[in-house]
Amino acid sequence: MSKFHITTTVNGEAVEYLCDPKQTLLDVLRDELNLTGSKEGCSSGDCGACSVTLDGRLVCSCLVLGVEMQGRSVETIENMAQGEKLHPLQQKFLEAAALQCGFCTPGFLVAAKALLEKNPNPTESEARYWLAGNLCRCTGYDKIIRAVLETAADMRGSK
């Protein structure tokens, strides 16, 4: 099985890689590019632990093939903090104890950031439905939803 040569943009940087046609974007990120912040919980698009944005759109990277990435642009959890400054969502997740084991956390943060970019003032219900594609088994979602809503309020206030 010969490999494909792909040129793409990851976290704002041009990247080249070789991948076989069966490898998902998640496989490429984790195994070829050593970006292990995106997690594999199911490889069927049900758990959201591998959430990334692809050309600005929230996707499960396990449902995208590595060979589809030619000329596209992907943003992962590794690029969420700007320099030494955490994104407000990251900071709020820490302060609000919105994580326990932390495995689902990168996916939640990427998904929540995508939500707030689309809808800076979500209701609780909107936040719950937007994040319904991200599974968390530790927290019961309470502190995660609170953290997202509080961050949204903080970010609106600071604008």
């Binding site: 970006l35 912040g37 959890i77 903090a81 990251q90 994580l99 932390g102």
Partner: peptide, 23 residues
């Protein structure tokens, strides 16, 4: 009290290493 957990930053930045992250 309710301080930020010591392993927190690693876990919100994707830096924390779980079982499958070792290579």
């Amino acid at each position: 009290t309710r301080p930020v957990r010591p392993d927190g930053v690693d876990k919100v930045t994707g830096r924390a290493n779980y079982g499958a992250d070792m290579k």
